[in-house]
């Protein structure tokens, strides 16, 4: 009889649809993922970094894109947060990464966002960050947090 060498590596994926101006899905998805990660017994510091990335990334989609998806991939080594949107895209990613730079409207600022801190916050919390954007098409953002020390 052959020895079963298959090694089980649990993978959990969570997915949220984000519509244009659906601002509250950002906080809701961040809270929901946080609860899931707490149930999985993950470290508080990791959970907080992941929740901040989700909040800011999903908010960016709701503010700037026409629609998009938020996906969270949980593996034994890392958590990857991905937002994939259809919209205007980011003409200058380096400029968008600059703290204080924002194209958000007055309405967004009144809600307490639009301070030009979204992408810098994501960069601060992620171990790896990839942004692929095409003007007039959309943006793919992938941020990874590893369970081992940075």
């Amino acid at each position: 009889m052959a020895v079963d060498t298959f090694q089980f590596t649990p993978k959990i994926n969570l997915e949220f649809a984000i519509r244009e101006k659906d601002f509250f899905v950002a906080g809701e998805s961040a809270s929901r993922v946080k609860k899931t990660l707490q149930q999985l017994g993950m470290q508080q510091e990791i959970i907080k970094r992941v929740a901040v990335i989700i909040y800011e990334a999903a908010m960016n989609v709701a503010i700037h894109a026409s629609h998009g998806m938020l996906r969270v991939f949980i593996s034994p080594e890392a958590i990857t947060i991905e937002t994939d949107d259809a919209g205007g895209g980011i003409p200058d990613v380096d400029l968008a990464m600059k703290e204080g730079y924002s194209t958000a409207t007055h309405e967004i600022r009144e809600m307490g966002f639009g301070a030009g801190m979204g992408l810098p916050n994501i960069r601060q919390c992620a171990d790896e960050l990839k942004i692929d954007s095409k003007v007039g098409v959309g943006t793919l953002l992938q941020a990874t947090v590893y369970f081992t020390n940075r």
Partner: peptide
């Protein structure tokens, strides 16, 4: 909100004049 997410620690009292649902989340 972004400042709260970026700079607040944990287990603190949050003092704010923003009253929307984002503050709660």
């Amino acid at each position: 909100i972004s400042e709260m997410l970026a700079s607040a620690g944990s287990h603190m009292l949050l003092i704010t004049s923003l009253t929307n649902a984002h503050v709660i989340h």
